[in-house]
Design a protein around this nucleic acid. Structure first.
Length: 451
RNA sequence: GGCGCCUUGGCGGAGUGGCUACGCAGCGGCCUGCAAAGCCGUUUACACCGGUUCGACUCCGGUAGGCGCCUCCA
């Protein structure tokens, strides 16, 4: 088990994860008001792979990624779709599962829904009212921000300095404009609601995460993750709610940077989104995963078609190597020292605040060296590395070309042997039409699937 | 205005007080009937101005520009 350090975005310091307790990771998932875009996929990929890495190092990691299925925007989107909001949210949740399944990284250890955590939410709110950190007002319940001294400590803000944007219509129910809703009374145009001691209504946006994190990971857990755009107010409010209710909450905060197009954050409100499913269709899952780990998780990452194509070319280089070096039977020669160094470097990079670009550089160095000289153990080591970052499918044997293509290839080999290159090229074109690229080597020829 | 982050070669993106990751693209070769794959060589870097230092892309200060959050957003 190697020492893993994570840069805590709360303190700005590198923190070493404890090796003798469960590493609970709570990462904020999507609000299912639309299909997810590639920016939403970044935290899913980063935290899935982080959990995978920690487990492979022997840590007891548990990854929780929630689904926010109660929200103003869901009501609005459902209304526009002419669909009951509960059905709409279910449909979008299903689409989210399908899209992220296609990444091929498996599922998080738990994926709680807000709608299935109402009891925990109500209990937490009751605790906050009991301790006077929250109050009921006209069927709503608000968190009393000024009652919590630490408010603003994550995002570095002072309550006094906050230029609070007013929510139209509801401010009169608040004691203080800074206060935020824990529970919202049922409104006429909302077609779902839940019972509570304060009447029928629904939870506010932030409380669900506090409740779900506690339900899955307990009152104190190792890592809380999510996009950097959630630092304020979402995560700030989570801290306030949980800590005010006596829960120590997250020990380390990890915020992933935004995906950007033309140096602008990709977001629904900007309208510059690129859907995950479309990226998967167009570039393939390996390219999408590779793209998402091509920059360090906490930095912004540029997105455009060229970047995706580069990722596709990059994974093709890895695939080419693995194709030439299928798993050996046995009696393999002892691993070369160079290989061991790269493998160590790869894991070391991941242990160093999950530096995926540096890890991948190690993998590429291994490939380059193994392409120029015999490197015992290189293919096996590479497969191991790629498995850690969800790219193990690059090593998968290609499906057979089928009788027609194989027949054509044999025919072409005959033509080449007879030095009838015109015929050979004709056949090559024909194979290309069938989706196969021909690669000649010393005495043989290989068919490679073109996508 | 407040808080935080960023500025690396054609593109993306690491990193370090001295030895210029990695990938893509370009150019010239090798190999090949040709191509692909692969290999070799090679062209563009650290926004700007000061300071610290034997030495800074890396540390400090300033300037310019950009981004994020402050309202729903991964």
């Amino acid at each position: 088990m190697r020492e893993v350090r994570i840069k805590d975005s709360f303190t700005g310091e590198l923190r070493t994860l404890s090796s003798d307790e469960e590493i609970g990771i709570y990462a904020c998932g999507p609000t299912v008001c639309s299909l997810i875009h590639i920016g939403n996929a970044r935290p899913f990929v980063v935290f899935s792979l982080l959990a995978r890495f920690l487990k492979s190092e022997g840590y007891r990691a548990k990854l929780v990624v929630n689904v926010t299925d109660i929200n103003d925007r869901i009501y609005a989107a459902a209304r526009q779709a002419g669909e009951p909001s509960a059905e709409f949210a279910k449909r979008m949740t299903r689409a989210y599962f399908e899209d992220t399944d296609r990444l091929g990284l498996g599922r998080p250890d738990a994926e709680p829904l807000a709608t299935e955590t109402i009891d925990g939410i109500v209990a937490l709110i009751a605790d906050l009212i009991e301790s006077e950190h929250a109050y009921e007002s006209g069927g709503d319940v608000y968190f009393r921000v000024r009652s919590f001294d630490g408010y603003g400590k994550l995002s570095n803000r002072r309550a006094e300095e906050m230029d609070q944007g007013e929510e139209a219509g509801s401010e009169s129910l608040k004691e203080d404009p800074l206060d935020f809703a824990l529970w919202k009374a049922h409104k006429e145009d909302e077609d779902t609601s839940w019972d509570s001691p304060w009447g029928s209504g629904r939870p506010g946006w932030h409380i669900e995460c506090s409740a779900m994190a506690e339900a899955e990971l307990g009152p104190s857990f190792a890592i809380h993750g999510g996009g950097s755009d959630l630092v304020f107010p979402h995560h700030e409010n989570e801290i306030a709610q949980s800590e005010a209710a006596g829960r120590p909450f997250a020990r380390v905060w990890m915020h992933n940077g935004m995906i950007e197009t033309d140096a602008e954050k990709m977001s629904k409100s900007e309208g510059n989104i690129f859907q995950l499913s479309e990226a998967l269709d167009r570039y393939g899952r390996e390219a999408v995963v590779d793209y998402l780990i091509s920059g360090r998780y906490r930095q912004p990452l540029a997105f455009d078609a060229e970047q995706m194509e580069q990722a596709a070319t990059r994974v093709e280089r890895l695939r080419n190597f693995l194709r030439e070096h299928p798993p050996a039977g046995d009696g393999a020669a002892p691993e070369d020292e160079f290989v061991a160094t790269r493998r160590e470097g790869f894991r070391g990079a991941l242990a160093d605040d999950f530096n995926t670009p540096r890890a991948m550089a190690e993998a590429f160095e291994l490939v380059a060296e193994a392409n120029r000289r015999q490197l015992p153990g290189a293919p096996e080591a590479l497969r191991g590395m790629l498995a850690l970052v969800g790219l193990e499918s690059l090593a998968r044997a290609e499906q057979g070309a089928g009788a027609e293509a194989e027949g054509l290839l044999a025919e072409r080999q005959q033509a080449r042997a007879a030095r009838d290159f015109e015929r050979a090229d004709e056949i090559r074109d024909r194979l290309a039409e069938l989706g196969w690229e021909v690669r000649d080597s010393a005495g043989a020829a290989r068919l490679v699937r073109r996508c």
